[in-house]
């Protein structure tokens, strides 16, 4: 089983399930996961101030199905989740809902079954599904092979996923230069000219001044780092202290991919002591266990 964390919701799902659809919004959205042949799970979230009336919601839903006349619904109650098993003309699904008071959010999980319901898998997924806590001012996201810990006041503004490339960009708002970006790049031998340090230097924005380049080893990874000040325009330089710029990149020896992160903003308190002890991106278990 592999852990996924998206929008503070965590799931443990079979290793071969991949996220094919996602939503960036915090207040309401949907993600869908698929195995190699079809969609297997989707989860929907929506913020509510109070818990909904589940009895009524389920009863209304069931009534709608019965009125449509082509699906049979039976109640289910698994690991604190309430839901329905729906034998429809197109598919067999089980859908469960639960209100998470700590994040004021209703989460709905829909499992899509190719032939029959796997009760053990259902229980396993629902027992482990829940909220990933925000701690020490960072939130945790785990998706597309990366474990990311952006500052909790940043929002996911951009997410681009394509073959051999995933990029998640967290910012205070869409136009702000302040934020953190995480990338995972594959098929590195096909496109990387030179070494990772040169690649990282070449993509450093021209607004970065007083740049310093360093390299260190971390849990079997050779991490290249770049640090400096981000000076965005002459006027801003006069008006306010310019934010710090930091970037890091490495190739993971376990999967051969290149991982990179960039941060523009004030230094985190934890990074004052050992800058490279808290890179908010991990690529593999070796790196994660260090955290």
């Amino acid at each position: 089983m592999r852990e996924w964390i998206w929008r503070h919701f965590r799931f443990e799902l079979p290793d071969d399930w991949e996220m094919l659809q996602y939503s960036r919004r915090l207040d309401a959205g949907r993600c869908a996961m698929a195995d190699r042949y079809q969609y297997r799970l989707e989860f929907n979230w929506k913020e509510f101030d109070t818990a909904p009336d589940f009895d009524r919601t389920l009863s209304d839903y069931r009534h709608d199905l019965e009125r449509a006349g082509d699906a049979k619904a039976t109640s289910e109650h698994v690991a604190g989740w309430r839901g329905l098993r729906v034998d429809g003309p197109d598919a067999l699904t089980t859908r469960f809902g639960r209100y998470f008071k700590e994040v004021k959010c209703l989460l709905e999980v829909v499992l899509i079954w190719p032939d029959k319901v796997d009760a053990d898998l259902t229980r396993s997924i629902l027992e482990r599904a829940g909220v990933a806590p925000v701690a020490n001012g960072v939130s945790t996201w785990r998706a597309f092979g990366m474990t990311m810990q952006p500052a909790s006041d940043l929002k996911l503004q951009r997410c681009e996923v394509e073959p051999a490339r995933a990029m998640l960009d967290f910012r205070r708002n869409r136009d702000s230069p302040l934020g953190e970006t995480f990338e995972r790049l594959g098929m590195v031998d096909h496109w990387l000219k030179g070494d990772v340090g040169q690649w990282l230097t070449a993509r450093t924005p021209r607004q970065v001044r007083d740049a310093q380049h360093g390299t260190h080893h971390r849990d079997g990874h050779q991490v290249h780092e770049f640090a400096g000040r981000y000076i965005d325009g002459r006027l801003k330089r006069l008006l306010a202290r310019s934010p710090d710029y930091g970037s890091a990149a490495w190739r993971c020896p376990h999967d051969g991919r290149l991982y990179a992160m960039t941060r523009i903003g004030r230094k985190r308190p934890s990074s004052n002591t050992q800058a490279h002890d808290h890179t908010p991106l991990a690529c593999c278990l070796a790196m994660e266990h260090r955290k």
Binding site: A32, Q38, E42, K46, T57, A68, D70, D90, R95, G97
Partner: peptide, 20 residues
């Protein structure tokens, strides 16, 4: 959320397979 999608999940994904 459940009421709005009485018959299908919103992914339009229910039952769809790309196996063929």
């Amino acid at each position: 959320m459940m009421r709005r999608d009485a018959r299908k999940s919103r992914a339009g994904a229910t039952g769809r397979t790309w196996r063929p």
